[in-house]
């Protein structure tokens, strides 16, 4: 499909939520709204699922449940035309705070990447940066490193005009400290499936 020739209909987040409420999608469909596009999520293998569980466990130890929510694959009201369901998010607050609307301002977003590495780095990285998500991790199962992205800044060459200025690659044996939990030290080994 030559992209110049075809312009597909973009959906706003409000429309997307209405499509879900109206039952337009098939039951069990795994979708995300990314910059107005309805994108099908890749099926998950056991390493991917294991990575999510390990991340969730490690982050729940660091982010106390009276003040923080650590979610797995739940919707984020990222911007007017994006509603991704990141593998793991950390958000300030309590569950009932988000009864009226999905969390919009996570302090940390994590994607576990195998086949989806390019999508997670370029497309989602640029979207999260554009929404000023302060910290974004990719648990890169292919190279067995944790990629830590910080400092969103405008970058015209990125798909959505924004990118992260700082990127650190942490290998097993190293530690990561989330910006929102400055005293924590999480061993990267503990996150790798």
């Amino acid at each position: 499909m030559s992209e110049s020739a075809i312009r597909t209909r973009r959906w706003s987040r409000v429309e997307y939520d209405r499509l879900i409420e109206e039952g337009v999608f098939q039951p069990g469909e795994r979708l995300e709204l990314l910059a107005g596009q309805l994108v099908v999520r890749e099926p998950q293998g056991t390493p991917h699922a294991t990575g999510i569980r390990l991340l969730t466990r490690a982050l729940r130890e660091v982010f106390a449940e009276d003040r923080w929510i650590v979610d797995m694959q739940l919707p984020v009201a990222l911007d007017e035309e994006s509603e991704p369901e990141p593998d793991v998010t950390v958000t300030a607050g309590n569950p009932r705070d988000f009864l009226p609307s999905h969390p919009a301002r996570p302090v940390l977003v994590v994607e576990v990447a195998e086949a989806s590495l390019a999508l997670d780095r370029e497309e989602k990285g640029s979207l999260y940066a554009r929404a000023r998500v302060p910290e974004y991790w990719i648990l890169n199962l292919r190279d067995r490193v944790l990629e830590v992205y910080r400092e969103p800044h405008p970058d015209p060459s990125s798909p959505h005009g924004w990118a992260y200025r700082s990127r650190q690659n942490l290998a097993a044996g190293e530690h990561v400290t989330p910006s929102a939990a400055p005293t924590a030290r999480i061993a990267v080994t503990n996150l790798m499936p």
Partner: peptide, 24 residues
Amino acid sequence: MSESAVRPRRWTRVEYDKLIETGF
């Protein structure tokens, strides 16, 4: 957006007609 990475959701004609009926 590298095309290999993003798989857009495809609509069937039946779903499309439903989008029209429901006013989307």
